[in-house]
Amino acid sequence: MPPLKKCFHIKGRDFIHAGQAAITVQKLLRQMGIAQSLIRRIAICGYEGEMNVVMHGGDGLFCVEIDADRISLEISDDGPGIEDIARAMERGFSTALEEYQEMGFGAGMGLPNMENHSDELHIESAPGKGTTVRMLFHSPETGDSQED
């Protein structure tokens, strides 16, 4: 399988299209016959990453790269950046605005979800310098694409 890379723009505060990049990638992976269990993990991680950009970021880019032995997601934005990455990784910690929390976002579960459902999670960020989140999913699982 030759490597395939696709990128999608994400606009900060654009809740109308929020989640669309993750949905598009989900459909693409299905068309490619990637195992459902892996697609589901990527869906969770992609959604969380995309929503973080929508809530906190300025504009962002959501890229998926599919190789024979791994899939990667790279979600970057030019938003305010993360002051304390270790703190941001704590379940329940959130800096989301109250109005977003009332919408059911900002429960402090996004980054923990990404960590739990990816094989590798790397975050590069600094205040004022934006954020890049890379997630790797090893060895695309095969053989269960027909489950459920």
Binding site: F15, G19, I23, I44, M51, G110, N113
Partner: peptide, 29 residues
Amino acid sequence: LSEVMANAPIGCAWLTIQVHQNIVAVAVL
């Protein structure tokens, strides 16, 4: 939404009081 995204069973009927359009993205994913 993050809690639902991580834990809702595939193929479920999801009961919520949220009404904004992002619930559809969660349901699709």
